[in-house]
């Protein structure tokens, strides 16, 4: 079944098309942030830049790690590391939905033949102290994007409001290629021997990281690292360094996700950990806003 889709429908081409499309919309095309994060929203280009008055337009791919979602490469729909395509537009333009729908047409999803639906999805990130209102975007019953108007980040009001679009790249590609198993995704669009599938690229990674996430991650080490990241974040906030401080916040957040996947975080402890990460996010955001105001 591999490589049965036309090259234009390959996984990498989907990314290239989105890059082209959003570049044409005037976005700064960024590269992924070089740290483990749970979602594209964590990238400082979204979290921090959505705060403060300055306009901002950016788009990027962000590998996202959800340790608890790993299935050892054996589930056709679940992986512990996947790609999000993230667009952030500040202030949210009035025609943002139309532009988004045009982007879908651009990657081969034509509303004339499909059922595109905006289904309520209030987004909240307790670890970031952030929330917004928006929708899941459904195409023929499948969630292909999330759409959010940010109201608060780090506990601070977003003024102006940013519009955030997150495309789930693997799901979109599976839809476009018409396949049921993520590992069968045609990655590079080459016919025959030179073809690479998603499985060729990532199955081993899924297997090994699932084993790490669920069995091997040393919780004592993780707990120590969490405490270290927390302490470092505090010191950096003190030193007035918002971006390095926020790096430590992202670290703490990922460490918490790993601890959670290992099943060592109880329901109540969970709330406490989330509150601790949120405090780091808040402090970093506050520092960021202070800096932004100072520079303006």
């Amino acid at each position: 079944m591999a490589a049965s889709s036309p090259p234009a429908h390959s996984f990498q081409n989907l990314i290239l098309e989105l890059q082209r499309f959003w570049a044409d919309q005037g976005c700064v095309i960024l590269q992924p942030y070089d740290m483990e994060v749970g979602a594209g929203t964590f990238h400082p280009a979204t979290t921090l830049r959505s705060l403060g008055p300055e306009p901002w337009k950016a788009a990027y791919v962000q590998p996202s790690r959800r340790p608890a979602d790993g299935r050892y490469g054996e589930n056709p729909n679940r992986v512990q590391r996947f790609y999000q395509y993230q667009v952030i537009l500040k202030p949210s333009p009035d025609d943002i939905l139309d532009v988004y729908l045009t982007s879908l047409a651009h990657i081969g999803i034509d509303a004339a033949g499909h059922d595109i639906r905006f289904v309520e999805d209030d987004w909240e990130s307790p670890t970031l102290g952030a929330w917004g209102l928006g929708w899941e975007v459904w195409c023929d019953g499948m969630e292909i994007s999330q759409f959010t108007y940010f109201q608060q980040v780090g506990g601070f009001d977003c003024e102006p409001v940013s519009g955030e679009i997150t495309y789930g790249l693997e799901r979109l590609a599976m839809y476009i290629q018409g396949i049921d198993n993520i590992f069968d995704l045609d990655w590079n669009g080459v016919e025959g021997e030179g073809c690479f599938t998603y499985g060729d690229v990532y199955r081993r990674s899924e297997r090994e990281f699932s084993a790490y996430n669920f069995e091997r991650a040393d919780t004592d080490i993780l707990l120590r690292q969490f405490v270290d990241a927390e302490a470092a974040c505090g010191q950096l906030v003190e030193a007035g360094l918002a971006l390095p401080a926020y790096d430590q916040c992202m670290k703490a957040s990922h460490l918490f996700n790993l601890l959670d996947a290992r099943g060592v975080v109880s329901v109540t402890e969970r709330a406490a950990y989330i509150a601790r990460v949120r405090a780091l996010a808040r402090a970093s955001c506050e520092q960021w806003l202070g800096r932004a105001a100072g520079e303006a």
Binding site: A112, G113, D115, C139, G141, M142
Partner: peptide, 24 residues
């Protein structure tokens, strides 16, 4: 499934898409 549109193909692709999602 209640679609919110009249598809050009009469809904075949929509049904197929929804069946696939449900299967997953």
């Amino acid at each position: 499934v209640i679609a919110n549109t009249e598809a050009v193909d009469g809904g075949g692709a929509i049904v197929e898409g929804n069946e696939r999602v449900l299967r997953a």
